[in-house]
C-alpha cells in the first residue's frame, strides 16, 4: 500500500479500491469494516470453485475529512469486474445503514452540530453490476442499496465517485444515478448498458464496441458533464477526488437536493425535456448533443486539456 501522501498524486484510475478508500479521507483516519482480517469471503464463489477475496471486492469503512465523518464504499474492478454479490452487497447496505444511524443519532443528541460535523457517504463505483456467480443475491442487494439511498435523503449526502477502469454499468449504473452528487474524472464511464451489449442489440455499424473514442464519448466523464449527469469533473488523481469530496463535506445536507438529477416529480419533468430532445434529435453520436448544447467544435473540445474543457464547455440546459 502506498503511503497516504504519495497516494494523493496517484492516478485514481490506476489505484486499487483500498488505496482509493484510504486516500479519500484524512491521513491515518480510515477504519475498515469487514476488511481482509475478517475474511468474509463469498461462500457462493467457493461452492463454484472460483477464486475468492477476503473483502469480496468491496472496501468499506469510515474516516474523516476535517471534522466530517466520511463513510466510504470502494469497489475493486480487478476482482471479478467489481461485481456485487451477497457479501459485498451486504457491506454496501451495512455501511449506508450505519451512516444513516449516525446521522439520526447526531440529529437527536447533538441538535446544534455544525454541517461539517455531520456524516457523508462517498462511493467509488467500479462495477458492471450483478455478480453472475451469485446473481440472485446480487440483484436483491441492488434493490436494498437503492432503498437505503431513499432512506438517506435529507439525512446523509451520498456522493458518487467514478474514475475507475471498469466504469459503472448495469444495475449499479442506475444506483449511482440515484445518489445526490456525482464526481467523475474524464476516464470514468457511467451508463446502464455496456458497449458490447449495445453492439449486440444494434449491430456493429450502429455501435462498434471496440471503438474506444466512441465508447468514451457516449458514457465518459466529459460527456456526462455536458449532459449534467455528473455534477463535477476532476483530474485523475486520488487527491483531486478527495478535494471535491472535502468541498462537498462542508455543505448542509439540504444543499444536495439541488445537485440531484432524479428523485422528485419536478426532476422527472426536467429529465423528460431531455427525453423529448432525444426523440426530436435522434442523435447519431454524443457529439450531436454537444453541438446542440452550444459547443461549436465538439471534436476539439473532446481533446483539449481538462482545465480548458472546463473553462469553455457549454453544458446542456434543460
Amino acid at each position: 500500500m502506498s503511503k497516504w501522501s504519495t497516494l494523493q498524486d496517484r492516478s485514481f484510475l490506476e489505484s486499487n479500491a483500498r488505496e482509493r478508500a484510504i486516500g479519500i479521507v484524512d491521513e491515518g483516519t480510515f477504519t475498515e469494516f469487514a476488511g481482509p482480517l475478517d475474511r468474509r469471503t463469498s461462500p457462493h464463489l467457493e461452492t463454484l470453485g472460483e477464486a475468492v477475496e477476503f473483502d469480496d471486492g468491496i472496501v468499506t469503512g469510515v474516516g474523516k475529512i476535517g471534522k466530517t465523518p466520511v463513510f466510504v464504499i470502494s469497489q475493486e474492478g480487478r476482482f471479478i469486474g467489481g461485481s456485487v454479490g451477497e457479501v459485498g452487497g451486504a457491506k454496501m447496505v451495512a455501511t449506508l445503514k450505519t451512516a444513516i444511524a449516525l446521522a439520526d443519532r447526531i440529529a437527536k443528541e447533538f441538535p446544534k452540530a455544525a454541517d461539517d460535523e455531520k456524516p457523508v457517504v462517498a462511493i467509488s463505483f467500479e462495477t458492471g453490476g450483478v455478480r453472475l456467480h451469485e446473481a440472485n443475491a446480487g440483484l436483491l442487494a441492488h434493490a436494498e442499496v437503492m432503498d437505503q439511498f431513499q432512506r438517506a435523503r435529507g439525512k446523509v449526502p451520498v456522493i458518487t465517485l467514478i474514475g475507475s477502469k471498469v466504469g459503472c454499468f448495469g444495475g449499479m449504473g442506475f444506483v449511482a444515478a440515484a445518489t445526490d452528487a456525482i464526481v467523475m474524472s474524464e476516464f470514468g464511464r457511467l451508463g446502464l448498458t455496456g458497449p458490447e451489449v449495445i453492439e449486440q442489440e444494434m449491430g456493429k455499424d450502429e455501435f462498434d464496441s471496440a471503438d474506444r473514442a466512441l465508447v468514451y464519448r457516449t458514457t465518459g466523464g466529459r460527456h456526462k458533464y455536458v449532459m449534467g449527469d455528473c455534477n463535477f469533473i476532476v483530474a485523475d488523481t486520488v487527491g483531486a477526488f478527495r478535494a471535491q469530496v472535502a468541498e462537498l463535506a462542508k455543505l448542509p445536507v439540504s444543499a444536495f437536493e439541488a445537485m440531484r438529477r432524479i428523485g422528485s416529480a419536478a426532476l422527472v419533468e426536467k429529465q423528460l425535456k431531455g427525453v423529448a430532445l432525444a426523440a426530436e434529435m435522434q442523435p447519431k453520436d454524443a457529439r450531436d448533443v454537444w453541438k446542440h448544447a452550444g459547443n461549436a467544435d465538439p471534436v476539439a473540445l473532446a481533446n483539449v486539456p481538462l482545465d480548458a474543457f472546463k473553462a469553455t464547455v457549454k453544458r446542456l440546459a434543460l
Binding site: 479500491a17 481482509p36 477464486a51 477475496e53 480487478r78
Partner: peptide, 15 residues
C-alpha cells in the same frame, strides 16, 4: 497484520 494485493486474474492477495 499486513494485507497486500488484489485477486485479479493471474494475481493474488496476501495476508
Amino acid at each position: 497484520p499486513v494485507h497486500f494485493g488484489v485477486v485479479g486474474s493471474g494475481d493474488l492477495e496476501v495476508l
